[in-house]
Design a protein around this nucleic acid. Sequence first.
DNA 1: AATGTAATGTTATATTATTACATTTAGTAT
DNA 2: ATACTAAATGTAATAATATAACATTACATT
Lengths: 160, 160
Amino acid sequence: MNKTADEKVLQQPHNHQHCMTQALQSAEKICTDKGVRLTAIRKRILELICSSHKAIGAYELLDLFRKEDMKAKPVTIYRALDFLMEAGLVHKIESLNAFIGCLQAETQHQSVILICDNCKNAFELDASSVYKTIFAMSKEKQFTPTTLTIELHGLCDSCS
Amino acid sequence: MNKTADEKVLQQPHNHQHCMTQALQSAEKICTDKGVRLTAIRKRILELICSSHKAIGAYELLDLFRKEDMKAKPVTIYRALDFLMEAGLVHKIESLNAFIGCLQAETQHQSVILICDNCKNAFELDASSVYKTIFAMSKEKQFTPTTLTIELHGLCDSCS
DNA sequence: AATGTAATGTTATATTATTACATTTAGTAT
DNA sequence: ATACTAAATGTAATAATATAACATTACATT
Ligand SMILES: [Zn+2]
Ligand SMILES: [Zn+2]
Ligand SMILES: [Zn+2]
Ligand SMILES: [Zn+2]
């Protein structure tokens, strides 16, 4: 991808090829460290997800993947997604039933996902302090927290 | 419902009949104020949702509703849910594809939903300060926020 | 009563996700 | 190298969630 084809994301123009390379390298490292296998299917599906910062649905992904592997079925995608989510390489956006690649999979992070309802670009904002507050609030109610989902819809800079 | 049948919710035993009565009264008031109609179907579906504090799916609701109205279809439920959500009487839990009644529909509130993964009871915790923080963070990224979803899974007091 | 709008009825279909079981592949032990 | 084992994939079917399109009915206003 050349410079003129760069997307504008995170309110910053950026060389998106770098995101891809980085994501794939992280993936290799994480899987090696965890002792799990980043197979061809899993890797390709991660590439497809990371080919933009837009949230993508499982069936959109299936359509793309089928261009290269006609025999792919929904479960092919869902299995890969489960694996990639388990490894922290991909996140599900619950309010969209769609998925994004994580740009900081190697780093422990607690994030809010900002989702542009116009262009569907989605990115994570680190928000550990917010997590801390919410966990504390829940514990005051004798609640034992496990997973926190925070999704903010709106319009990104380019779309507003 | 008698006292012994009271549920334990919000880490507090409570007379659940009161929740129901309160929710229905609020609903009447809100709909009157907004000039919209709380029809028999909508009211009954609200009652079914509010009959416990457990998150309930649209098709579970359909099964219950069909006991009284055999000809009900999925769209019957989804229309009522859309209406009730629009009126702020019901919230959708995105991470469960399920719904809960709101206990504070008359009051403007910004909440985190705590969801017990064991008993499925879900309740709202007011968290305006958290909303404020997240909105501010997003604005720093030139993001124009609209809707914020915060869902915390875990175990409630009774289940942990 | 005539009119217009909102609500509901009815049928069909779209979208998202999982289950079950067979087969293949890849790593491990012999 | 061979046999074994567990993980991954293939394949088919189906479950679960949600919406579209159009006809009919009920309700409010005149
Ligand atoms: Zn990029
Ligand atoms: Zn945008
Ligand atoms: Zn109650
Ligand atoms: Zn519980």
